[in-house]
Amino acid sequence: MKKNQWYNNQIFPWLLPIVIVILWQVLGQLNLIKSTMLPTPFEVVEAGIRLFQTGELQENVYISTKRAVIGFAIGGAIGFLLGLFNGTVLFFEKLTDTSIQMIRTIPHLALIPLVILWFGIGEGAKIFLVAVGVMFPIYINTFSGIKNVDRKLIEMGKVYGLSKWQLFTNIILPGAMPNILVGIRYALGVTWISLIVAETIGAQGGIGYMATTAREFMQMDVVVLTIVLYAILGKLSDFIAKLCEQRLLKWNPAYRKN
C-alpha cells in the first residue's frame, strides 16, 4: 500500500459526501426533486435552526442521548461483567454461557411488543431495549478476548509471582482490551439502531418522537433533519470509541500514530 498518494489525506474522504450534498441542493432547486418528496439541504438546515431557536432540537437530542448513555452503561456493564466471569471462572461459563448464546440469537427488537406490555411507553422501555441490544456484543467480545489471552503470558505472570488480581490487571484485561473495544464499537451502533426503533414506536420525547410528529404534520424537512441527527450522533459516538482505541491500544503498532 502506497502511503504518499494524492488521495491519502484528511480531506479526500469528505469529497464524495460534499459532492452528493451539492448535487442534492442543485437538483432540488431545479425542482427535479420535489421538496414534498425530499427537501433540499438548505431547507433541512433551516428546519434545524428553527427548532434550535424554539429549543426543541436541544431538548430532544438531550433526551435521546441520555437514553443512549444510560442504556449503554447498563447493558455494557452487564455484558462486560458476564464476559469477565465466564471468561475467567469455568463454573460460571458452564452455568450461563449456553443460555446466553441461546437468548442472543433472538433479535432484540422482536421484544418490542413484550417490552411495551411490561414497561408501557415510558423511559424504561427504551433503556431496556438499548441495554439488551448492547449487552450481547460486549459480552461475546469480552468473553472471547479473555479466552484468547496468550496462555504463555499468563504462565510467565505466575512464575513471576503475580497475584490473581495482578494477573488480571496486568495481563488478562490489557490482553483482552482489543476485543473488548471491538465489542464497544459494535455496541454503539446497536445503541442508536435500538433507540431509533424504540422512539419511533412510542415516546413523548427524543429524536424519534420528533420524526413521528413531523411525519404526522408532513414536515419533510424535520423528518430528514432527524435522520441527519441520528447520523451525526452515530458518527460522534464512533469517533469517541476510536479515540479510546487510540489511547488504550497505543502499544499496538496498528493504532500508533507516527
Binding site: K152, L153, N170, I171, P174, G175, M177, L249, W251, N252
Partner: peptide, 8 residues
C-alpha cells in the same frame, strides 16, 4: 520466547 507484555 521473550514473553514480554506488549502493552507495557
Amino acid at each position: 520466547d521473550d514473553r514480554l507484555l506488549p502493552w507495557k
